[in-house]
Write a protein that binds this DNA or RNA. Structure first.
Lengths: 114, 114
DNA sequence: GCGATATTTGACATTTTCGCCAAATAGTTT
DNA sequence: AAACTATTTGGCGAAAATGTCAAATATCGC
């Protein structure tokens, strides 16, 4: 494989790894609605504050968010709006997988509502 | 957080984790060009055959590819065309990050060509 | 059925990632 | 500068992901 291809793969993996964690998915989801300070995010996702901070720094290292201090608080902003279309794609995979799993058992989504 | 939100996050993470690996990124890239048998993929990516097989099964479990045996060979097909637009988004992040890193050193992409 | 080729699976050591605690840093208020 | 709030960082054990070897399974041609 060529050197440029190796770099391309590494770059993609760096971004994907940054996204592939439950807390970080929540962070992206929150930030897609607008900037938030760490304390707000902490209140929403519920994880330990230091854990949230570390996950935010992972997103920052990957170039997905930026941070800005204002007074005592640090606000994070999502830098990558195109992530939203990706999330839709991922959700489509998820829902397709779900309906196929149900079909395999002779069920439908309707049948699961009680 | 609501139960539906938890499921949504878990689903997204399952797909993202499946994507976040160098070998699997290569597999997706190859399969985006058309179906391939395991032996072809093995020849292209170079990793151990059993490793390739396991990574393919990870993609399959995530619902991203399907497999079909024809004779002695098993062919894998990419099920998620929308992944391509996502990859473009990821690449955009990567290249932006690269150019910013260069700017921070007072360089440009042109200046790096020798 | 037997040997050859293609692929998957199980087991296991190694590496990576994660979460939480304690401690450090930054800014505000008094 | 001391007290207080907000956030980050270092360290470390626990959990998850990874790669490889050996063995199992599947299909084909003889």
């Amino acid at each position: 494989m060529q050197a440029s291809a190796i770099r391309r793969v590494r770059g993609r993996v760096a971004v994907l790894k940054a996204l592939a964690h439950p807390v970080r998915v929540q962070l992206i989801e929150q930030l897609s609605r607008g900037e938030r300070c760490v304390c707000e995010i902490h209140a929403i996702v519920g994880s330990d504050l230091t854990t949230v901070s570390k996950h935010l720094s992972v997103l920052k290292s990957a170039g997905l968010v930026s941070d800005e201090r204002r007074g005592q608080q640090v606000f994070y902003t999502l830098l990558v709006p195109c992530l939203n279309s990706f999330v839709e794609c991922v959700d489509a995979v998820v829902s397709r997988r779900l309906s196929e799993a149900l079909e395999a058992r002779g069920m439908t989504l309707e049948a699961t509502k009680r």
